[in-house]
Design a protein around this nucleic acid. Structure first.
Lengths: 203, 203
DNA sequence: CCTTTGACGGCACTGAGTGTCAATAGATGC
DNA sequence: GCATCTATTGACACTCAGTGCCGTCAAAGG
């Protein structure tokens, strides 16, 4: 009950922030501007979001947990390239579930890629997903994550593919188009992901 | 003459900053602390460095330009994995040219990887090198950087290898050890870098 | 010797982010 | 119905990063 109100305020704040940031740019909009539109106090803003960057980055934060969860759900027999492609595709497809949601997601992506401060935060978050992905991959293939570079690099290549897709995301692109871009990106890294030697655990 | 003094002040500031940051941590040290040790005013600090992060990140900034320059200097006939390995190796080897310099570089790397704010800036800088590397790769192989995902992903894989090496850099590791780590990292991505199809330009 | 140039320090200001406290509103117990 | 406990909020004050502005001072150059 109080939980629903929290969600309401957070949504209000997020919508106000995204609207202002997307139109006026990240640096010119202050937190005071955002709270003025949302109708709450400055202090309340920082109770919901750790920083100005956080409002935007959190919008895409679910992707991280999703990617790791999806990878864990894939059958172990599947080659790494296919498993990672699926893991990355699920949250990407979730961006295009409704047409209105799609365009907003694309605008947020563009804002992040074009704003240095946001881009830095985005990369930082991505690198955390990378850690989790690497741990999952190491467990999947029974590799030592401290000495074997494969898990971390494979996770990094998956993130690289995700990044490449988001960068090439043009206005008006639908789910079909995103799927094509994802396939292209993974086609590039697949030879490294599925290279023999590391991935096959000795029975 | 005035130029030499500028360099002197910048060095003083950098040394004071690195000493304080490495011992007390990034967040607890203020710019006032740094300038107190360096013996200049607060305002002067910001004339030399754009931000507190900048002091640390600039320390490794030369690497970026170096990587791109080295790649451009490699013969075109060389396979991408070898060319990129060399390009990444040169600045890495430069970190170990003198023993004292080596250990300081390692401490800075550790500081960056362990401090979220610095890590974010580092990744952001790395992504700029990635842009330049991708452009160079596209030119090398006569590919369209806007539609072909190969150049950007190949550049990203090189950065990924660099990142992996820096992460595995243990105390006391010498140039020999760094070379091993670099070889290991590039062995993972080589199959994707040298995959047929994209890299071979039609004559 | 005088002028111009450039670096420096001091000062004031904006804006992000945090700690604290009092007020308020809703849930709970009697 | 009323008291109470708890969680959320707003207000205020504070620290610190970063910037603009200006007066000063010293060195270069005529």
């Amino acid at each position: 009950m109080a939980e629903r109100k929290r969600r309401l305020v957070a949504g209000e704040l997020r919508d106000a922030a995204l609207m202002l940031l997307a139109t006026k740019g990240f640096d010119t909009v202050t937190v005071d501007d955002i709270v003025a539109v949302a109708g709450v106090s400055r202090r309340t803003f920082f109770r919901y979001f750790a920083s100005k960057e956080d409002v935007v980055v959190r919008f895409l934060a679910d992707m991280g947990a999703s990617v790791v969860a999806e990878l864990a759900a894939r059958p172990r027999a599947e080659p790494p390239s296919a498993a990672l492609r699926h893991a990355v595709w699920v949250p990407l497809a979730a961006c295009t579930d409704r047409a209105d949601h799609t365009e907003r997601a694309r605008i947020v992506v563009r804002l992040i890629l074009d704003t240095p401060a946001l881009h830095a935060r985005w990369l930082d978050r991505q690198s955390r997903w990378c850690d989790a992905l690497a741990a999952e991959l190491a467990a999947r293939h029974r590799l030592d994550p401290d000495t074997d570079p494969y898990p971390r690099m494979a996770a990094g290549m998956a993130m690289l593919a995700l990044d490449t897709v988001l960068r090439q995301w043009q206005p008006g692109a639908d789910e079909q188009r995103l799927a094509e871009l994802t396939d292209q990106a993974f086609a590039v890294v697949a030879p490294a992901l599925d290279t023999p030697g590391a991935p096959e655990p000795p029975p």
